[in-house]
């Protein structure tokens, strides 16, 4: 564990170098987040005719641009990477190293964050320059909570995706599960449609799932929909709880998976 922590800075630096080297791939991943933009187009048209349940154009712009930024900052492709490595057997190389493979994955994807931040900077500028800036939070308590929420969302997403990737140890085609996951995520995180606009039972269900902590909550904090500072920090707390729990599950799943992999000779 100590060795993994010591190696982490190097792993991150390599991760960033990799990300820069494979920038075309990065661009493709960024371009795949089209959903918020399409939804933005739709809902602003709707809201232009008349506010939709008290949400005006400005509210939708704020929401979806913030969602785009959060999604791009927190998302990564580690699930896909792990699944591929298990499928092709490359994961064996990682298992032979004296540090836990999770450290390697962490380095790769954490290292890519600066580049992602650079890529969403234009969107952030647009957001701040637009009329939506009026709803963005500016007081220190909320800004701090937002930063913590972004970190928490990243950690949560990473933990969840690692867990999903680990499924490849047990299933032949984990991509199917990942596909299903995305559908569920898109609804219960508020990625597709803002949670407040969904039916009551959906919102109630969302409270029991980690997805809103991955996107909906940070966005809500950012655009001022959580006026109470304490409430904002409570959301952050829940995030980190989810992240820790999912990381634990992922770690256990990985151990089981590796044992199975080695038993059947990858």
């Amino acid at each position: 564990m100590r060795r993994a922590l010591a190696a982490l800075p190097t792993l991150c630096r390599i991760g960033l170098t990799e990300a820069v080297a494979y920038r075309a791939e990065m661009v493709v991943w960024l371009l795949t987040t089209t959903m918020p933009l399409v939804m933005l187009g739709l809902w602003t048209s709707v809201a232009d005719e008349a506010p939709f349940r008290a949400w005006g154009s400005r509210d939708f712009v704020a929401y979806y641009l913030a969602a785009l930024i959060v999604r791009n900052l927190t998302s990564n492709w580690v699930a896909w990477q792990i699944a591929e490595e298990i499928r092709t057997g490359t994961v064996s190389g990682r298992l032979l190293r004296p540090i836990h493979p999770f450290a390697g994955y962490l380095g790769t994807h954490l290292g890519a964050v600066p580049l992602r931040a650079l890529a969403v900077a234009p969107v952030a500028i647009i957001l701040v320059a637009s009329s939506a800036r009026a709803v963005l939070v500016t007081d220190p308590v909320h800004v701090a909570a937002l930063v913590a929420a972004l970190l928490g969302a990243w950690a949560l997403t990473f933990a969840l995706f690692v867990g999903l990737g680990t499924l490849a140890f047990f299933l032949d085609k984990p991509m199917g599960i990942i596909e299903v996951y995305f559908g569920v995520f898109a609804i219960f995180s508020g990625y597709l449609i803002p949670l407040p606009l969904l039916p009551g039972w959906v919102q109630a269900l969302a409270d029991w799932l980690p997805f809103r902590a991955m996107l909906g909550d940070p966005v809500a904090i950012a655009i001022g929909r959580v006026p109470d500072g304490a409430a904002a920090w409570a959301l952050v707390g829940r995030q980190w709880a989810w992240a820790a729990g999912l990381m634990l599950v992922a770690t256990v799943a990985w151990h089981r998976g590796v044992r199975r992999y080695e038993a059947f000779g990858g």
Binding site: R13, L16, T17, V20, A21, R23
Partner: peptide, 10 residues
């Protein structure tokens, strides 16, 4: 090799 060279190559 290295990060600086990678960035410059952009």
């Amino acid at each position: 090799p290295g990060l600086a060279a990678a960035v410059r190559s952009l």
